[in-house]
Design a protein around this nucleic acid. Sequence first.
RNA 1: GCCCACGUAGCUCAGUGGUAGAGCACUUCUUUGGUAAAGAAGAGGUCAUGGGUCCGAUUCCCAUCGUGGGCUCCA
Length: 623
Amino acid sequence: MSQPSSVDELSSPSDFISRMRHTTAHVLAQAIRERMPEAQMGIGPVIDNGFFYDFQLPEQLSEDDFPAIEARMRQIVKADLPMVRWSEPREEARKRCEELSQTFKVRLIDDLPDEAEISFYQQGDFVDLCKGPHIESTGKIGAFKLMSIAGAYWRGKAENEQLTRVYGVAFETQDELDNYLIKLEEAKRRDHRVVGKHLKLFHIDDAVGQGLVLWTPAGGAIRTELQNFISNELRKQGYDQVYTPHIGRLELYKTSGHFPYYAESQYPPLVQREFLAALASDGCTCGELSNKLSDGDVEGYLLKPMNCPHHIKIFASQRHSYRDLPIRLAEFGTVYRWEQSGELNGMTRVRGFTQDDAHLFCTEEQVPGEIQGCLQLVKTIFGTLGMTDFRVRVGLRDPDSSKYVGDPANWDKAEAACREAAMTLGVPFSEEPGEAAFYGPKIDFVVQDVIGREWQLGTVQVDYNLPVRFDLTYTGADSMPHRPVMIHRAPFGSMERFVGVLIEHFAGSFPTWLAPEQVRILPIADRHAEWCEALKTRLVEAGIRATVDSRSEKTGKKVAEGQVARIPYLLVIGDRDIAAGNVSVRHRELGDLGGRSVDQFMDDLLHEVRERLLAPIPPVKEV
RNA sequence: GCCCACGUAGCUCAGUGGUAGAGCACUUCUUUGGUAAAGAAGAGGUCAUGGGUCCGAUUCCCAUCGUGGGCUCCA
């Protein structure tokens, strides 16, 4: 679901469908109020495809109640009640809401600016504070359906009351609604969790833990290809590969500022045995433990929530001249974060994930060029994968927040560099105040999943903070120590999330270079199996992921299963092929391509894989 | 973490207050078949886990764990 599409939560866009959806929300509120007269109403805005309305209810509402509520809503629609609007002075309006005991509406009025017009809408005997606009009468409402119930905090703040949010969708006609519901079903079929299970790409096991992804052989093949791809690009751009362990001393993260500041979003520290024993015998409380941890009285290790401190220590392990810079340290680094359980989602939101991470250490002057280089890499990767549907977000400081560290003057420079680099990408981008990391501005690349949720993939972040915290220096031309600037960047984001998004992007039909199984050879009869095995060996030796389906099944069945498994190439082999030294090629999308020589097939296939083509070159059918 | 829903065979799902079913997958046999699914037989489940109500619970109630959709959060 999406955010309220209006900036002002009391109003909604004025096109017919939006007005109609908004009116449907009021009809829902009326039906709920009739059912539970004590219900308090929160806000009820228009969203993509529909609406929601928040209520504080005297008793629990369940989705089982939807049929009854929908039935009452249909009666209200059928009654064709006119939507009557009027406005009144603040005090009067306030009194009216108080009399209706709508305390949330009173709070809304109190938050309205002095000059705001305060208006109400009424249908039948149901009155609601609302800026509108609405349609003329409830009879104009088309087809609607209540979708789900969710808890939602008043004003979106966790410390506020939790309200019951009812989501609904509404369209002008039943056909449009049916169409929407069908599309939703289709989208669910390409959900990476569904496709991932079907194609056996990954597995998450209770016994291993929530949000901890197990890469199966098929998923592993995809990941390996992606990592090889990016490693090659990094080499071309002058990156050096490093490796670092999965844990580090608490001290390291105190220096970096990650601990205890972000302690709640990390796995608890690994503390020494002696301390655990002392804890058990002394009856030390959890509060004491956390105090001792943050005071530094306890030695311990942290599962790393980020790779930067380790990379920084590699940089700092040697003296650097300005002539060495920039230094670019890359690692597929696995990090662990304690995401809230309600937020976990397949591969796209997990607790352990591997970033295609790198940290660049450069001079102030090199920052714009390095950012450009990062964006070039992103362009290459997304271009190769045919991912054009993403947006760029430039995260800037929130003007009225003190959570940022570092020199504001440096921030200004960094923000300017990000803005300029983003502009050169040639894609639409938005500047978003408040989206910056605590240590610097950033450029994010955001994509949507099958049901329209946005996920952040790659990121490029400038950091003026950590070099100070770790007192990093390089020797300048003046032989004096200077402070380097750091850039964190991960164009894929994490392998988990990226592959999750890719599964949905390709709906499981990966381009040949990424496909876990690229070629499946189908002998028609048992007597062809030996020849097929030899062919497989030849393909495998050429670096192709090929298998033979030598079961005693009919060819039609083997073809069907190969298609369902989304394998790019099926080779049907019988007497005719063996006699001619040919393979009969069937492509996943293009169908039966007829016979061609083994050499020809391999040349084409290897070219397609080497060039990482999204689709095969148009086939030249041999006669 | 919070709200609502869900958890039955490897997968997709039916079903019931009297200890369970289908399709696909799997195993074996028959079949050796040229581009989307050949036939038969077999095997497979302490109905998520732990309590409670009941003569009896997979079914009803509670808790826990997990999953899904939201909310909050997100270095």
